[in-house]
Nucleic acid binder design. Structure first.
Length: 112
DNA sequence: AGATTGACGTCTC
DNA sequence: TGAGACGCCAATC
């Protein structure tokens, strides 16, 4: 096997996998948790690959506004919303309602 | 090897 | 107040 290199994708997967049911986080929060700060785009990009993994609930990851920007990447445009609502998260206008309540900050919950 | 893109975020006009 | 542009970092073509 080649050398172990920092797979940022895997780092994102681990954080997303720790998101409890009925909760959601933002790309920027994960990026900041990984130390990428402004690398929120990279987190979203990682989610694209995470979409192929069963243990990575990408539907629990939204932008800072709580908007389901990546719903179009799912099997169906409503799959993301359906999944979140199924977990008790209210969605309004493609945006998470009470996002501040369901917001899950890895830096706080995981207590660095 | 270089250029472009990307499920974002923040600043500026 | 709203809209637009720029910046970040890595992966992909």
């Amino acid at each position: 096997m080649p050398k172990e290199k920092p797979n940022y994708f895997d780092l994102v997967y681990q954080v997303v996998r720790e998101i409890p049911t009925g909760r959601a986080t933002s790309y920027g929060a994960i990026a900041h948790y990984l130390g990428l700060k402004s690398g929120a785009r990279m987190v979203g990009y990682a989610m694209n690959a995470a979409h192929a993994l069963p243990d990575v609930p990408a539907h629990r990851v939204v932008n800072r506004l709580g908007m389901l920007t990546g719903r179009h990447h799912f099997s169906t445009p409503t799959a993301m919303q359906e999944a979140l609502e199924s977990e008790g998260v209210k969605i309004e206008n493609d945006q998470i309602k009470d996002f501040d309540k369901v917001f899950w900050d890895p830096e706080t919950e995981l207590s660095i």
